[in-house]
Design a binder for these strands. Structure first.
Lengths: 339, 339
DNA sequence: TTTTGCCGCTAAACCGTTTTACTAAACTTA
DNA sequence: TAAGTTTAGTAAAACGGTTTAGCGGCAAAA
């Protein structure tokens, strides 16, 4: 009940605190007999050394700090919980604790920097945070950090773990082609950012490799709001002839796109097929359940924690880690070609 | 860059470390002139005091530990992320950090107890954990803790925050009645636990208050698996005449129930209406979107953090905090009575 | 025989703060 | 003016471990 100290244990065992400390840390310089005796007393009393003292002495906190992006709509939180879970699992196996922070878009970076300076944590994992000013500040301050599930240009040379969206888009488009589709459109953001660059790039490359052409009218822009999905569908409906399928660059979009497509009387997949990217929790529960590119959800957390650990330890590391996705067939893609 | 200590600051200001410490902690015993001078140096150098030392001295960690239930299927994680988010927000405003752990069903309690003994955290929030042996052990050890979103008998006298499921079930049933339904069934677990007791109790009370009767055949048992939902629907379909509506005791059940009901050719809400409890993230994206009992998602985290804080501070507190829910009309309840 | 090296062990210093106990000066009060 | 009180300030102890430096004893090497 009361708090035992290392001195209490030392007194009970009739040795110095140094000896006890050596036993606790599995260091040599203690005879087997003494070691046994001390260990027995520790076991019997249930003594555990004070964490703060340990951290103070070692100048390390054995703690990984996770910063989660704070969204109003929890649909955008994508894989946050799964990521958190696997970060925890790996951290634990490495002897690290996990602390948590939520950051909105106006996130203040100095607090994080201070927390590393004071050894409150040894490193940071940023989830879904791509703000360049924050990242470059962290780089300048030489803070050990890793980005996960964010959209960051490769030339920033930021340590990151994410999905291979270029490959995902390529495979998704290829999948549509293999189902017999030859008129394939693209629904996604058109802002010239990394995400657009990768997804559209993969889409275009797949079309090219399949010798397909694409009407610019089939390239539909959509944003993260429901209204924009609605407007997107309405715009497409004015086309003289729709493509038979779309690659939709993200389940967050597909959820709304499918909803409004159905509302406007389009049948899915009879009238249009949708192939998507991400495989969110909700996707399998849509009607029809969404065909999309899926992946091992544990990888985001696992790889980012391992990467951060390498950085903390000063080991060499591969800064960019892209996770491959595989198609999962559900109900939004119509098979045209009979096999 | 290098790590400043309070001694450095003291030297630069030409005062003792005590004076600096007093300034840092806003204590009296320092002249205004000295205070200004020290503060200016702290500001200029960006000095922040070492956390571990502080915690060691004060014998407190200013940290709240959150234990999340680890589920294979993330659908069951219900409101974990929202809860985490609001726990963080309130904790921050109280000057506390948040650490995180995931626990499976074979969770080991001693680690947690140790972490409190060593002041690694000042208190614990258990999310979706109802294991009586764990709870009573924590109670015995006099650990400050709060349960949130768990199913715990009130007579255990465990500090807890959760949904008022009795009231939710009552209101949901009442809602069906007000839409004109008089033949109302109940789909839920029938294990004699708190959850069943509350939801079925609320359902039965609402029927009674509306002078409705209920055929025992309308009481359908379901478990947390897809197969059980399928079996449940198949059993109901053998009835000579179905009720027009069901109270389904939880969106986790409704998701599968609706899926298999549709698969078996039942139209929702034309053939049967479903009123549910919880309002999970997925619920609004089902087809038709699920009518259910919703609530302010921030409350679970907020109230549990406040409650834990009161316990930590040794203030008096109300151990049981039940959050009220309100019906949200979506697409699974048919209006029979014309208004 | 002396030297070297290792082993088991400990006293004391150290990590970076907070807190206690005490001093000297200034300011009140009678 | 003497006594009491408040104020600004500091030295040193405390928190609970880890690490360093050193000591005596013993065995192997020179």
């Amino acid at each position: 009940m009361s708090n035992l100290t290392i001195r209490d244990i030392a007194r009970m065992a009739g040795v110095s605190t140094t000896a006890v400390s050596f036993v606790l840390n599995n260091r040599s310089g203690v005879s087997e007999a003494t070691r046994q005796k001390v260990q027995e007393i520790i076991r019997r009393t249930g003594f555990t050394p004070n964490v703060h003292t340990r951290r103070l002495n070692l100048g390390k906190s054995f703690t990984i700090h996770v910063v989660l992006r704070q969204y109003g709509d929890s649909l955008f939180n994508q894989f946050a919980l799964e990521t958190l879970n696997s970060i925890f699992t790996v951290s634990k196996s490495l002897g690290y604790s996990v602390t948590l922070t939520f950051a909105d878009s106006s996130m203040d970076c100095t607090q994080i920097i201070d927390s590393v300076r004071n050894k409150d944590c040894d490193g940071i994992i940023l989830n879904q945070i791509s703000d360049p000013s924050i990242l470059s500040q962290l780089q300048q301050e030489n803070i050990p950090f890793v980005c996960v599930d964010a959209h960051i240009p490769a030339d920033m040379n930021v340590p990151m773990v994410g999905l291979d969206y270029y490959d995902a888009a390529y495979q998704a488009t290829r999948y549509l082609y293999e189902q017999g589709h030859t008129r394939i459109g693209f629904i996604g953001p058109t802002a010239p950012d990394v995400y657009y660059h990768n997804t559209f790039g993969g889409y275009a490359a797949a079309l090219k490799d399949a010798n397909l052409t694409c009407d610019p009218a089939w390239l539909a822009e959509v944003a993260y709001t429901e209204e924009s999905a609605q407007a997107c569908i309405d715009r497409l409906l004015q086309l003289p002839e729709l493509p038979t399928a779309f690659l939709c660059a993200g389940d967050v979009f597909s959820v709304n796109i499918i909803h409004y497509a159905k509302e406007r009387g389009l049948r899915i997949p009879e009238d249009i097929s949708i192939m998507s990217l991400d495989d969110l929790l909700v996707s399998r529960y849509l009607d029809p359940p969404l065909s999309t590119m899926t992946f091992n959800k544990e990888l985001l957390g696992e790889n980012s924690t391992r990467l951060l650990y390498q950085i903390i330890q000063g080991e060499s590391y591969e800064p960019v880690n892209l996770i491959k996705t595989t198609p999962v067939e559900r109900g939004t893609v119509k098979r045209i070609k009979e096999s």
